[in-house]
Design a protein around this nucleic acid. Structure first.
Lengths: 192, 192
DNA sequence: CAGCGATTCTAGCGTTGCTAGCCAATCTGC
DNA sequence: GCAGATTGGCTAGCAACGCTAGAATCGCTG
C-alpha cells in the first residue's frame, strides 16, 4: 500500500501546486490572466491535468477562495487580539477587512464576489469560511444590544463592510473618504 | 441637411434597439447569454454593426446600466413618496433597493457589480446615476445626526444595502432572514 | 523482461470578442 | 440623368477561451 500512498501524496502536492499557482497568478495579474493554458504552463503540466484534479476553472477558484478565507481569518484574529477594547476591536476588524479587500483584490473577488460553487451559509461550508465568519462574529457579538441576534447582526455588519469594499474598489465610491465612512458605520453599530 | 438628420435619427433608433435587446436578453437569460453574435441576431443586423455604435461589449453593458439606474431612481422615488414618515421612508427605500436587486439581478449586476467603464463618483457621471444616488440621499438626509455629512452617510448606507443585496443573491447569506437584517440596519442607522 | 494499467499529452471542438476588407447602396457634382 | 466618390453593412476570419477524446508513454506486476 506504500506505493499508492506515495502516489496520493504526490497527487495532493500537485493539487496544492495548482491552487497556489492560480492564487499567485490571480493576485499578480488578475483573474483574467488565469486561463487554463497559462495555469498549466505555470505548473509545468498540460491542460487536462487540471481537470483530473478539479471539475473546472470555477472549482479551482473555489479552492483559492477557501485558502483566502483562511488568510483573512488569521488577519482578523490578530486585529481583534491587538485591540484594547470592544469598540476598538470592532474598528480594527473592520479596518482589517476592508484593507484585505484592497490589498488582495483578486483573492477577495474569488471569496465574495465571483460566483463560486461553494456552500456558504450552511453547516457544510468549508471550515475556513466558518472560521472567517467566526472572527467577525467574535468582534460583533459584544456590541449586540439586548434582543439582537448576534449572528444576524454580524451578517448585517459583514454586508456593510463588503459593500464598502466592493463599491470603493470598483470606483463607485471615492477612495479618500473611506476611513470616514468606516467610522460612520462603526459609530452607528456601536450605538454612538 | 434633412437627409443627414434622418440618418442620425435612424442611427439613434438602432442604438436604442441594441441597448434594449441587450437588457432584455440579459434579464431573461443572464449576461452569459448576451454574446455579440446572439445580440446581433436579436436586432437582425450583423455583428460589426454593434461596434459601430459601441466600443465593445462592456460599453453596451454600461449603456444598459445607465438605463437601469433610471429605472431604480423611479422606483426609489415612488417608495419614498408613499411612506408616511422619515423612518418609514428610509425603510421603504431600503426594501425597494434590495427588492430591485433581487427582481432584476442582471440589471443590478451591470449597474453595481460588473466592471463597467463608467464614471461614478464624479460630476461627469451620467445623469441617471446621480439621480439614483439622489433618491437615496433624499431618504438618508433626514436621519443624519448633527455633524454627520449626509453624503457620506448615504454612501455608507448604500454600501450596506449593496452588500446585503449581493451577498444574499449569491447565496452567501441565507435568504429567509433578509428582512430581519434589513430591520437591524435601519434600526442602527436611525439610532434606534 | 513482457505485458498491463494508470496517467499524461497531443490535438482538436465549439464559442468567445473583435476586426480587416470586400461590396453594394446612396448621395454629390457635372 | 448619369458617372464617380463615399458611406456603411456584411462575409469571413483571427486569436484565445474552457474543455475533452483518444493516442502515447510511463511505471508497476508477474
Amino acid at each position: 500500500m506504500s506505493i499508492q500512498a506515495r502516489r496520493e501524496r504526490e497527487r495532493a502536492e500537485r493539487e496544492r501546486l495548482i491552487v497556489t499557482a492560480a492564487r499567485e497568478l490571480a493576485e499578480t495579474e488578475g483573474w483574467d490572466a488565469v486561463t487554463t493554458r497559462r495555469l498549466a504552463a505555470e505548473i509545468e503540466y498540460s491542460q487536462p491535468v487540471l481537470y483530473s484534479h478539479f471539475k473546472g476553472k470555477e472549482a479551482i477558484m473555489a479552492a483559492v477562495a477557501v485558502q483566502g478565507c483562511a488568510d483573512l481569518a488569521v488577519e482578523l484574529r490578530q486585529a481583534r487580539a491587538a485591540a484594547p477594547g470592544v469598540r476598538e476591536a470592532l474598528a480594527a476588524v473592520a479596518e482589517t477587512y476592508t484593507s484585505f479587500a484592497r490589498r488582495r483584490p483578486a483573492l477577495y473577488d474569488a471569496m465574495f464576489t465571483h460566483l463560486v460553487p461553494l456552500p456558504f451559509a450552511t453547516q457544510e461550508a468549508p471550515e475556513p469560511l466558518r472560521e472567517a465568519f467566526g472572527r467577525l462574529l467574535a468582534a460583533v457579538e459584544p456590541i449586540a444590544a439586548d434582543g439582537e441576534d448576534p449572528g444576524l447582526l454580524t451578517e448585517t455588519f459583514w454586508a456593510a463592510l463588503h459593500g464598502l469594499a466592493t463599491l470603493t474598489r470598483s470606483g463607485r465610491l471615492p477612495e479618500p473618504a473611506h476611513e470616514q465612512r468606516l467610522a460612520l458605520l462603526i459609530g452607528h453599530f456601536t450605538g454612538g
